[in-house]
Design a protein around this nucleic acid. Structure first.
Lengths: 147, 147
DNA sequence: TTTGTATTGTTGTTTATGCAACTAATTAAA
DNA sequence: TTTAATTAGTTGCATAAACAACAATACAAA
């Protein structure tokens, strides 16, 4: 393999392994803070699932967000502490907690979606439709390679 | 904007914001564990800087790895605890700690580089030279947009 | 029915992150 | 030179992640 190609690979890997997500997370959370949303980016990830479909199990939320169960337990602990969701234990299967959005949790959708859209626009500034599609395809292939 | 384009953007953003780095980190750290390296992926990131250039300040390491100073303080605490680096306070500027690799820290390079190269190959499996270059270009543009 | 297995969620421990506030040392300005 | 501003590093606090070990419930097989 050529040297330059090896360097490209390593640089790409370095960016993928932390840099990008770290910067996005930092930027997004600063915007959340400025707007006094009172949630973290990780908590927003969970809420975003619930806005699409409310009343799902913790396991489902773990699967969708790529987190393990203990992480989800604690994320929901914090969401519940902030009054954004409640745990409702299922009547037919008592192992299961169904997670319900509260009024306060529902109300957060509009403002945080605005902010996220703004950040998405910033992140993808001067990307053409084709470039977004191509980049998305590359990254999905990488996700696939990691299975 | 078309609906499909909006969906592509959001999916791309979701992958960038966590999913990819989470999966890479999890996979790489499992390989480190299997090989009994006794270091985390984050600690490896710091060591990788030092293998290129030893005896640099904590601030320099912070800058290169995109972490803030408190994070670096604690990463180095742990590296020092594991006997991989030592802090040597600078004689000309007594505010500064120069970070020195120990013998044990130097010796880790070979094995961990092998593992990382293996993981890079897996992550970029079936990527052509051109695809790697294109993907790298996209991601650098995104990093740029976040400044 | 009883025993064994799988599933859902929690707790403990270690590591890491970010921000704010702080100390100590250096450098610049008045 | 004395004061003010900058820089390097640390500590406190809250949040989050991974893994291991665990309890409770449900389900399957014997």
């Amino acid at each position: 393999m050529e040297l330059q190609e090896k360097i490209n690979q390593q640089e790409l890997f370095g960016i993928l392994n932390g840099k990008i997500s770290m910067l996005i997370n930092r930027y997004l959370s600063s915007k959340f803070r400025e707007a006094n949303l009172g949630i973290t980016v990780e908590q927003w990830t969970v809420l975003a699932c619930l806005w699409k479909q409310d009343k799902v199990t913790q396991q489902t939320l773990s699967d969708i967000t790529f987190r393990d169960k203990p992480s989800m337990t604690r994320l929901i602990d914090n969401l519940e502490k902030n009054g954004l969701v409640v745990r409702v234990s299922d009547t037919t299967d008592r192992r299961v907690n169904m997670i319900h959005l509260t009024r306060k949790g529902v109300d957060l959708e509009k403002k945080s979606t605005e902010i996220v859209n703004m950040v998405v626009d910033k992140v993808l500034h001067e990307f053409s439709v084709e470039e977004v599609a191509a980049c998305r395809k590359f990254l999905k292939k990488i996700l696939n390679n990691l299975d």
